[in-house]
Design a protein around this nucleic acid. Structure first.
Length: 875
RNA sequence: GCCGGGAUGGCGGAAUGGUAGACGCUACGGACUUAAAAUCCGUUGCCCGCAAGGGCGUGUGGGUUCGAGUCCCAUUCCCGGCACCA
C-alpha cells in the first residue's frame, strides 16, 4: 500500500521483508515437471559486518533468483558458511574467544546485513561447514575415497608455511608464498595425506570442453594447471653400474642429440652414481638446493647452475657415453625428476651446454639462414640414424615404436597437476578420520563411528600453532582403540584443508538436513547441476578444480548423475571504493607521501609524477589546508574504505544499493562505488515511485487493456516500446546483463513520462505501468512489491513474468535511413507496407539526398527492408 | 616468452556488418525558490558555419564490403593468468 507521496525506502522495505518471510518466498521445493533453476553464489568465510564489496555477487544472485521465480521455475537459492579456517583461530588468539563463538557471532551479523539488503535465501538449507552435521560427511567422503584408493599417505618434500605453521597444497602456493599468509614457503620432508586428483586429470581436462557457459579465461587457467603433455618415458643405462635412469621427454625424436643428462638435486640416484672425486661438489650443490626456497630458485635470474656427478650414461640411440649432471633447473616433482638434455632442440639445455662447455648436436634441420640457438620448431631429422629425413611427428612415432621394441621405454602422457595434499597441522578444521595402530598400521574409522568430533579446546593457548597439530597435545582426543585389533591406538591429529569442505557444499544444499547420507541422490539429481554459479575469479583453479574433482568422484560412486557441478559460471568484478591513501606534499610536479607507514602498506612509490598519479586513477583532494592522495581500491576491512550495509540501508535504502551495484558497470567489470552512482539510483527509483504514486487514483480507475491490436499512434508506440523492453530485459537477465536491463527500464520510464504528459493516463499506460513494476522487481524488489500491492493482493513475484507480444513488435511504419555512398544523407518515416520502388522514390524526394545524387550516375541501390537504402553513385 | 581479455565522449559504458555514443554520471544554461537543497526542462564527441548543412571521429596501419566499432591481416599499448614442467 502506498502510504505517502514521497518515496520512503526505510519505511517500506522492512514491511516487505517481513511479508516475504511470511509467504516463504524463495523457499525451494522440488517441483514436478516445469523447469528448475539452481542459482548459487560462492559461500563466504563468515567475516561479520558486510560491506558493498561483499554484496555484489549476492545481489546479482538474488536478482537472478527472483527473476526465475517470476518465470515460474522451481528455484534453489541457498546460502551457507565456509566456516572452518585460519581467521577464526587468529581471532581466537587475538580476542580470547573460542573460534566457534567468533564464527557464529559473525554469521549472525552477516545474516542481518543480507536481510537488510532484501537478499533472500532458503535458510532451511543453510550449510555451516564447522558443524559436525556437515563435516561428518567430509569424513564420510574421505573414507569413500580411501576405499577407492584415492587417499594415500606419502612422505615427501612439502610446502611449509612458517606463518600458518602448516603445510599447504601446491595450488595454495603462489610465487613461492602462502596464498593467505604471503609468507615465503619452506620445504619440509613430512608424511602427509594426499588425494589422488591426478587420477582424474584427463577427465578434468576433457570435460572443460563441455562447459560453454564458463569464461574462457577460467578454462584456460585450468588447462594450464592440469598441463597435459604427451611424449615418452625411457631408460638410460648408467655406465659401470647396474642402474638405469628413467626420463620423460616430449621430444623422444631428438634422442640422437642427447649429449648429457641432468638429474634434479633431490633425485634418488644422485648419491649412488656420484664418483668419489665429485662427491664433495655434488653434496654441496644438493645441500644448497635444498636450502633454497621456491622463490629463491625462481629469482636468481634463471642463471643455470649445476655440477657434474662424474658418472656417464649410454645414449641408447647413438651408443655414445654422455655425462650425467645435477642441476636445479630440473624439477624433482615433474616427470621422473631426470631429463635427457638435447641442447640442439631445447633452449634451456642449450643455455646449460653453453655455460658448461657441453657438446651440442642438432637433430632437426633448422631453416636456411637460421641464426638462433636451439631450434624447437618442426623440420627434417638430421644426425639421427634411422630417423634422418623424417619430420617431428613421424620421427616421434618411429622412435617410440623402436623403444617399445627394444624394451627401453614407451609412449607416455604426463600432467603438471600434482596430487592434492590435504593434511593441515591446525585446530579449526575437520579431523581426519584415520587411526594409527602399532600392530595394524593405518586403520580407517568405521562409518558408524562418524563423526570424529573436533573437541572444544578450553584454553585459547591450546590452539596456537606450534608447528605440529594442536590436537596432538590432547590425549582425550587422540587416545582410542584400534577398530581392527582392539588394542591401544592413536587418532590422526591433523585436520583437513578447508577446500575439502567447499568442494561439495553445493550438493549438500540439495538435501541439507539429511542425517543419513551426504544427500539424497534423487534430490541432488533434481537440482544438479548448478545452473548459474557466481563468484570471484580468485577461485579459478583451487575451488573450481577441486569441486569438479569431487563431483566426478561422487558421480562415480553413483550418488549424482551430473559429472560437472557448474553448468554456468560467472566471475564478477570487484567493488572498489575511493580510498584516502594518505597526506601528500607536491614539490616540482612530484607527489611525496608524508606518512610512510601508510605508504609502504599500499606500496606506493615516493616521488610519483602528477601524470602517473592521474593515469593510475588517483586524485589529489584538499581538506583543511592539507592535500590527500585518493584512489579507488578494492573495498576491504583493512583499508577502511568499505561502505557498510547497515548504515547505508538505514540512511538510503536497500533498493538504492541494489540498483547502484547492478547499474554502475557490466557485472564482470570492476565497479567503483561513488556518491554520484548512488544519487543516480535514488533519482531513478524516485521517478518510478512518483510515476505510480502521483497517478495512482487514475491508474486504478483505468480498465484493463483488452485489444492491443486496435491501438494507434502514440498508444501503439508506447505499447510497442513496452514489448521491446520486455524482450530486452528478459534477454539481458538471462545473460546477467543487469546494467543494460536497467538502462532499458530507464528508457521505458522516460517514454512513459513523455506519454503521460501528452496523452494522460489511459488503459495502455496502466498496462505498461503494471508490466514495468514486474520488470523492476528483480532489481528493486521492495519498491516493486509496494507498487504492485496498489493493484493486486498477491506478491509481484508470483505474477507471471510479462510475455512479449510478437505482434506488437511489428511496427506499421519505420524510420528509413537513406545513405549515399554509405554516408547518412537523410531519414524519412515510411510505412512498412511500402514497396521497394516506393521507398526509392521517397528517398529521392529528400532534399539532402537530391543534392548528393544530382547529376551523378546511380551505380546501384542496396535496400535493406525495414531499415535503410544506400544509393551508390559514381564520382 | 606463452595463454586469455581489452582499447569507443570529461567518466561508467551502449551498439544481430546497416543512423556510433543508448542509459546514467559530470559540467553548463534555464524554471521553481527570499535563498539553497531537492525537483523539472534544455545543451553536452571534435572542427567549420548565423543557419541549412558540411568535414572529421571507435588505439595505429592496411584489407574485404554498397556499407566496418563490429569481419580479415599486421602493429602498438593496457589488464589478467602462467612461466626452467623437459
Amino acid at each position: 500500500m502506498i502510504t505517502t507521496d514521497k518515496y520512503n525506502p526505510h519505511e517500506l522495505e522492512p514491511r516487505w521483508q517481513q511479508y516475504w518471510e511470511e509467504i516463504g518466498l524463495l523457499k525451494a521445493t522440488e517441483g514436478k515437471g516445469g523447469k528448475k533453476a539452481y542459482i548459487l553464489v560462492m559461500f563466504p568465510y563468515p567475516s561479520g559486518d558486510l560491506h558493498m564489496g561483499h554484496l555484489k555477487n549476492y545481489t546479482m544472485g538474488d536478482a537472478l533468483a527472483r527473476f526465475r521465480v517470476q518465470q515460474g521455475y522451481s528455484v534453489l537459492h541457498p546460502f551457507g558458511w565456509d566456516a572452518f579456517g585460519l581467521p577464526a583461530e587468529n581471532a581466537a588468539l587475538k580476542f580470547g574467544v573460542s573460534p566457534a563463538d567468533w564464527t557464529f557471532s559473525n554469521i549472525r551479523q552477516s545474516k542481518e546485513s543480507l536481510a537488510l539488503m532484501g537478499i533472500r535465501y532458503d535458510w532451511s538449507r543453510e550449510v555451516t561447514t564447522c558443524l559436525p552435521e556437515y563435516y561428518k560427511w567430509n569424513q564420510w567422503i574421505f573414507l569413500k575415497m580411501y576405499e577407492r584408493g584415492l587417499v594415500y599417505r606419502k612422505k615427501s618434500l612439502v610446502n611449509w608455511d612458517p606463518v600458518e605453521q602448516s603445510v599447504l597444497a601446491n595450488e595454495q602456493v603462489i610465487d613461492g608464498r602462502g596464498w593467505r599468509s604471503g609468507a615465503l614457503v619452506e620445504k619440509r620432508e613430512l608424511e602427509q595425506w594426499y588425494l589422488k586428483i591426478t587420477d582424474y586429470a584427463e577427465r578434468l581436462l576433457n570435460d572443460l570442453d563441455k562447459l560453454p557457459r564458463w569464461p574462457e579465461k577460467v578454462k584456460a587457467m585450468q588447462r594450464a594447471w592440469i598441463g597435459k603433455s604427451t611424449g615418452a618415458e625411457f631408460d638410460f643405462q648408467v655406465k659401470g653400474h647396474d642402474l638405469k635412469i628413467r626420463v620423460f621427454s616430449t621430444r623422444p625424436d631428438t634422442i640422437f642429440g642427447a649429449t648429457f643428462m641432468v638429474l634434479a638435486p633431490e633425485h634418488e640416484l644422485v648419491p649412488l652414481i656420484t664418483t668419489p672425486e665429485q662427491k664433495a661438489a655434488v653434496e654441496a650443490y644438493v645441500a644448497a638446493a635444498r636450502m633454497k626456497s621456491e622463490v629463491e630458485r625462481q629469482m636468481e635470474d634463471r642463471e643455470k647452475t649445476g655440477v657434474f656427478t662424474g658418472a656417464y650414461a649410454i645414449n641408447p640411440a647413438s651408443g655414445k657415453e654422455i655425462p650425467i649432471w645435477v642441476a636445479d633447473y630440473v624439477l624433482a616433482g615433474y616427470g621422473t625428476g631426470a631429463i635427457m638434455a638435447v641442447p640442439g632442440q631445447d633452449e634451456r639445455d642449450w643455455e646449460f651446454a653453453e655455460k658448461f662447455g657441453l657438446e651440442i648436436i642438432r637433430t632437426v634441420e633448422p631453416p636456411a639462414g637460421w641464426q638462433g640457438k636451439a631450434y624447437t620448431e618442426d623440420g627434417p631429422a638430421i644426425n639421427s640414424g634411422f630417423l634422418n629425413g623424417l619430420y617431428v611427428e613421424e620421427a616421434k612415432k618411429k622412435i617410440i615404436a623402436w623403444m617399445e621394441e627394444k624394451g627401453i621405454g614407451q609412449g607416455k602422457v604426463n600432467y603438471r597437476l600434482r596430487d592434492w595434499l590435504i593434511s593441515r597441522q591446525r585446530y579449526w578444521g575437520t579431523p581426519i578420520p584415520m587411526i594409527h595402530c602399532d600392530s595394524c598400521g593405518i586403520v580407517p574409522v568405521p562409518y558408524e563411528e562418524l563423526p570424529v568430533v573436533l573437541p572444544t579446546l578450553k584454553d585459547v593457548e591450546d590452539i596456537r600453532p606450534k608447528g605440529k597439530s594442536p590436537l596432538a597435545a590432547h590425549p582425550e582426543f587422540y587416545e582410542c582403540t584400534c577398530p581392527r585389533c582392539g588394542g591401544k591406538a592413536r587418532r590422526d591429529t591433523d585436520t583437513m584443508d578447508t577446500f575439502f569442505d567447499s568442494s561439495w557444499y553445493f550438493l549438500r544444499y540439495t538435501d541439507a538436513q539429511n542425517p543419513q547420507a551426504p544427500f539424497d541422490p534423487e534430490k541432488a539429481n533434481f537440482w544438479m547441476p548448478v545452473d548459474q554459479y557466481i563468484g570471484g575469479i580468485e577461485h579459478a583453479i583451487l575451488h573450481l578444480l577441486y569441486s569438479r574433482f569431487f563431483t566426478k568422484f561422487l558421480h562415480d560412486l553413483g550418488l549424482v548423475e551430473a559429472e560437472e557441478p557448474f553448468e554456468g559460471l560467472f566471475t564478477q568484478g570487484m567493488v572498489m571504493g575511493w580510498t584516502n591513501v594518505g597526506e601528500v606534499e607536491v614539490r616540482e610536479g612530484r607527489i611525496y607521501f608524508l606518512d610512510d607507514a601508510r605508504r609502504s602498506k599500499l606500496e606506493l612509490e615516493q616521488g610519483l609524477t602528477l601524470e602517473e598519479a592521474q593515469k593510475s586513477g588517483a586524485e589529489l583532494r584538499e581538506e583543511g589546508g592539507k592535500t590527500y592522495f585518493w584512489k579507488p581500491a578494492v573495498m576491504s576491512k583493512s583499508l577502511g574504505n568499505g561502505v557498510m550495509v547497515g548504515p547505508f540501508v538505514r540512511e538510503q535504502g536497500a533498493d538504492i544499493a541494489r540498483v547502484t551495484i547492478l547499474f554502475a558497470a557490466p557485472p564482470e567489470n570492476e565497479m567503483i562505488w561513488t556518491e554520484e552512482g548512488v544519487q543516480g539510483a535514488w533519482r531513478y527509483l524516485n521517478r518510478v515511485y512518483r510515476l505510480v504514486a502521483e497517478q495512482r487514483a487514475e491508474l486504478k480507475a483505468q480498465p484493463e487493456l483488452l485489444e492491443p491490436a486496435r491501438l494507434e499512434g502514440a498508444h501503439k508506440a508506447l505499447y510497442q516500446k513496452l514489448h521491446q523492453t520486455i524482450q530486452k530485459v528478459t534477454e539481458d537477465l538471462e545473460a546477467l546483463r543487469f546494467n543494460t536491463a536497467i538502462a532499458a527500464l530507464m528508457e521505458l520510464l522516460n517514454a512513459l513520462n513523455d506519454y503521460r504528459k501528452a496523452e494522460g493516463v489511459t488503459p495502455v499506460f496502466r498496462e505498461a505501468v503494471l508490466r514495468y513494476i514486474q520488470m523492476l522487481a528483480p532489481f528493486a524488489p521492495h519498491l516493486a512489491e509496494e507498487l504492485w500491492h496498489e493493484f493486486y493482493e498477491g506478491s509481484v513475484f508470483h505474477a507471471p513474468w510479462p510475455k512479449v507480444d510478437e505482434a506488437a513488435l511489428v511496427a506499421d511504419s519505420f524510420e528509413l535511413v537513406v545513405q549515399v555512398n554509405g554516408k547518412l544523407r537523410g531519414k524519412a518515416t515510411v510505412s512498412t507496407q511500402a514497396s521497394e520502388e516506393e521507398i526509392k522514390r521517397i528517398a529521392r524526394t529528400l532534399p539532402n539526398v537530391q543534392q548528393h545524387i544530382a547529376g551523378k550516375e546511380v551505380l546501384k541501390e542496396i535496400y535493406v527492408p525495414g531499415k535503410l537504402l544506400n544509393i551508390v553513385v559514381k564520382g
